[in-house]
Design a protein around this nucleic acid. Structure first.
Lengths: 342, 342
DNA sequence: CTGAAAGCGCTAACAA
DNA sequence: TTGTTAGCGCTTTCAG
């Protein structure tokens, strides 16, 4: 079917081994021979088969990346970071989107194993209850390096890059407090997800630090999506002792919150101060000036990829599993919306 | 290194062929034998090697997807459509992001060829000037089916799914006209890209149909990004004979335009009617009610994938290249912003 | 500097 | 119903 190294050998009147040598730049090849081979390659439109090469060398130079949702700009940026480093190291990546669904995640892992990828970089499905023993067992028996990116896998310690959601949330809420807020509501995700749990913790720590009591009616845990955030915001606006600020702990939720405020023509921050976690580019660009805590997305991707490359190399030397965890600090971007109206 | 079919054969005390048979469900295998083999597979945590299988069968069941920017939600949706169909047909996909850069695109094609993918689904780099003869030649010599998705490759006819930007723009602008607008500005991309050219054409056709003269000062062609759109919008707002509506022909541009309007506290549509091409989810959700023409993204992905699968099958039968082009119509979503203030 | 040949893990005739 | 064997395209000793 397609042209092979054999055809090239024939055309250039050399042996297979010689063609292979010029292809890989390995071993000695006379200059004129090299040229003959190159000519044949051009002539015949030859492209080496990564498949055959992989089988022969037992290396694929490919790593698997598993993330919950490509369409979330957060992960879009993470991917940019990953591919950047991968490109520099001539590593191919196979990208798998799990739709935040455990079954798809397991399927992806299976696929990647079949493809004989050399390592995995992943953000596991968020819900921790999803991590049963079968799940953990596949992860443990992978036999290749796994680097986590900001996800949480119950009962296990894996190497990875993590974001300090606690500190991020703390810093943000503290900024609200410094600006004079005391009645601060929170719209949060499910507490069995690491990010939601930690962000909530940061919120509580900040309030606690400044001796502000926690009001149950200001706390809204749920799912990270805009519909719920919309409903929650409307409830918040109806509270008797209405908060002066809302900490919206997720980018998707932010949209629902802003929608609710818009509907009642409440302006940010004059009628309600808003602090977000993870940025919403569109809202920033159009000038809504919502203050937000921003996870280091691209950096996380780069760091994760570098860690993976490192453990790929280590793997050769010794036969041990090393645990390494790097924590990245989110940045606080104050855009004026943390302020309290005067 | 990793466990192979041979280990399984040994463990189950059968031949390689038998293991292969139970793996593929091909040929006859006695029930008890099958079980023995399955047991061995479980025991040894065996995962078949797609690499070896591909080499042997000369099939990879993998197709390449090349798009300019994963982070653009437009393509995010396209990808969802593609993967959905691919999943149904058990096809793997290798996703390549070109950053809208010709070099990366060529590199991606090379990579995919090496991986022996069976077909390509792509949105080529937009700028047509990028399509020189070398580029065209690699595309032509691919030897596998290529399906285009809404891109334009100069001087060549490829099969693909296309969006009728002309009609989409026409419908949208017509809606503005019906609502009473005559002074309609356009913020557009580079005219050497197919979408920009066609959207511009639709704009002109609509004006022409209703005998509205074209005003040069209302026409802003440039690049599809929010900074330029911002600048353009500010210029539009300074025009002596200020338009009453703006057709913003791209989702990125929309952000810059809205920013400029916000800065001057101009409300949509009372102070300025706005029509967009391609939706901006965030703005919709928060309730900005911008009217827009929406390209059928997911549908395009699905259709493209289906076309590719079809030509993959056809390829076996006869040895001919069939040209097939499907055009999808964008939908007009009127959200009130097409109206003229009273 | 170059060639011959074994082998990577699997499939697919062909025999048995 | 099962086993034997010849490749798939390439790399890599080991000889020459």
């Amino acid at each position: 079917m397609s042209v092979t190294i054999k055809d090239i050998a024939k055309a250039a009147d050399v042996s297979l081994a010689t063609v292979s040598r010029v292809l890989n730049g390995s071993g000695y090849v006379k200059e004129t021979t090299r040229e003959k081979v190159h000519d044949a390659i051009k002539q015949l439109h030859y492209t080496p088969s990564a498949i055959a090469r992989s089988l022969s060398t037992n290396k694929t130079n490919t790593i698997g990346v598993i993330i919950p949702d490509i369409n979330n700009p957060f992960f879009g940026e993470v991917i940019k970071g990953i591919t950047q480093v991968a490109d520099e190291h001539q590593l191919n990546i196979i990208l798998c989107d799990t739709d935040d669904c455990k079954e798809k995640e397991l399927k992806a892992i299976k696929l990647l194993r079949e493809q004989r990828i050399e390592g995995i970089l992943m953000t596991p499905t968020y819900g921790e209850e999803a991590h049963d023993s079968a799940y953990m067992s596949t992860l443990d028996n992978l036999g290749i390096p796994v680097i986590l990116m900001d996800g949480h896998v119950k009962y296990a310690n894996y190497s990875g890059v993590f974001i300090d959601h606690v500190q991020g949330a703390y810093d943000g809420v503290e900024a609200l407090i410094h600006a004079g807020h005391e009645k601060i509501a929170i719209i949060n995700g499910r507490l069995d997800s690491r990010p939601a749990k930690e962000r909530f913790l940061g919120y509580k720590k900040a309030l606690n630090k400044y001796a502000i009591p926690l009001h149950e009616q200001y706390i809204f845990n749920g799912e990270y999506d805009h519909e719920r955030a919309y409903t929650m915001t409307k409830k918040i606006l109806l509270l008797e002792d209405r908060p002066t600020a809302i900490f919206v702990s997720n980018n998707l939720s932010m949209l629902g919150c802003v929608k609710a405020l818009n509907e009642q023509s409440l302006s940010i921050p004059d009628d309600m101060a808003i602090l977000g976690f993870d940025k919403v580019d569109a809202l920033n660009i159009i000038g809504m000036n919502i203050s937000f805590i921003n996870g280091p997305t691209t950096l996380m991707g780069k760091t994760g990829m570098n860690m993976l490359i490192e453990s790929l190399e280590k793997q050769k030397d010794v036969h041990m599993r090393e645990l390494k965890q790097i924590t990245l600090l989110p940045e606080l971007h104050l855009k004026g919306s943390e302020k309290k109206s005067v």
